[in-house]
């Protein structure tokens, strides 16, 4: 259902009302009361029919939007299987959290594993360079040189092994980023569901407006609570990451602006 359908439904009723008013007047003037009551009944029925129709359309629209969400996203077999087990957007978003968390943990595992290896290579190289410098300055005794000779051989062999470990870990860190493709697809599906729901809500609001117009209901302004006043300044409400800082004046866009603000407060 689109907004236009709802509007045209409304104007259909308006047309009917206009036509019927003249007819009604004629009938009342002619004293044909039973025909006049019948006409009123018809107007009333038309009004109810229209309301049911719109509510029905909207319900179907929402239902379809939610049902459509289950359609397979065209992922690989493993992911499709996982996707099919997910019944709703909440689960999908939990899946995104799980995937990104797993990837972050896997990446950190490999980084934690690699850091000491890199440190060891650095420490061994530094120690060797110190002794190498003594050799260059000819300060080394023959037996010390034999030891250095053996240690260099060992170092080179170890470095080969360590380089293997490091490149394997780097490869696994790279692979751990494969979540982006899957979570990206899942998030896109959730976005389209949200969009569909948003559109349907707009239609609902539009229809509610039609209902008010048709039925002549007036709302008192007192029912609306001004949002600004409910948020007390002394207790700022957390908002989470700001996704559009460049479009907002009330947020900082980075650490530099935080520091600036704090130093203006005497920090």
């Amino acid at each position: 259902m689109t907004q236009r359908d709802a509007v045209s439904g409304g104007s259909h009723l308006e047309r009917l009302l206009k036509e019927a008013t003249t007819e009604l007047q004629t009938q009342v003037e002619q004293g044909d009361l039973s025909e006049a009551v019948n006409l009123l009944q018809r107007i009333n029925e038309e009004r109810s029919r229209l309301l049911y129709l719109e509510v029905g359309r909207l319900t179907r629209g929402l239902h379809d939007a939610i049902n459509n969400f289950h359609i397979d996203a065209g992922l690989n077999a493993r992911a499709s299987e996982e996707m099919s087990q997910m019944a709703d957007a909440t689960e999908r978003l939990n899946y995104v959290i799980r995937m990104t968390q797993d990837a972050a943990n896997k990446t950190m595992d490999k980084v934690e594993e690699s850091a000491p290896v890199a440190e060891l290579i650095g420490a061994q190289a530094a120690a060797l360079r110190k002794d190498w410098a003594r050799l260059v300055r000819r300060e080394m005794k023959p037996e010390e040189f034999r030891d250095l000779y053996r240690r260099i051989d060992e170092f080179l062999k170890h470095t080969e092994d360590h380089a293997d470990v490091l490149s394997r870990n780097l490869g696994e860190i790279m692979l751990a980023q494969d979540y982006q493709d899957l979570t990206g697809q899942v998030v896109k599906r959730v976005i389209s569901l949200v969009k569909e729901i948003e559109e349907n809500l707009v239609n609902l609001v539009c229809m509610a407006g039609q209902v008010d117009r048709i039925t002549g209901i007036k709302h008192s302004a007192g029912g609306q609570i001004p949002v600004e006043e409910t948020q007390h300044e002394e207790h700022p409400v957390p908002e989470g990451p700001i996704v559009n800082p460049e479009q907002r004046a009330d947020v900082v866009s980075g650490q530099d602006e935080v520091d600036e603000l704090l130093s203006s407060l005497g920090f």
């Binding site: 300044e233 002394e234 207790h235 700022p236 957390p238 908002e239 989470g240 990451p241 700001i242 800082p245 009330d250 947020v251 900082v252 866009s253 980075g254 650490q255 935080v258 603000l261 704090l262 407060l265 920090f267």
Partner: peptide, 22 residues
């Protein structure tokens, strides 16, 4: 990740020693 100016000011007034945004 909280980056609203009023939040940073509030944290400073509440006595935070440092503020880092993610």
């Amino acid at each position: 990740a909280e980056a609203k100016r009023e939040q940073i000011v509030a944290a400073a007034q509440a006595g935070v020693n440092g503020y880092i945004v993610k």
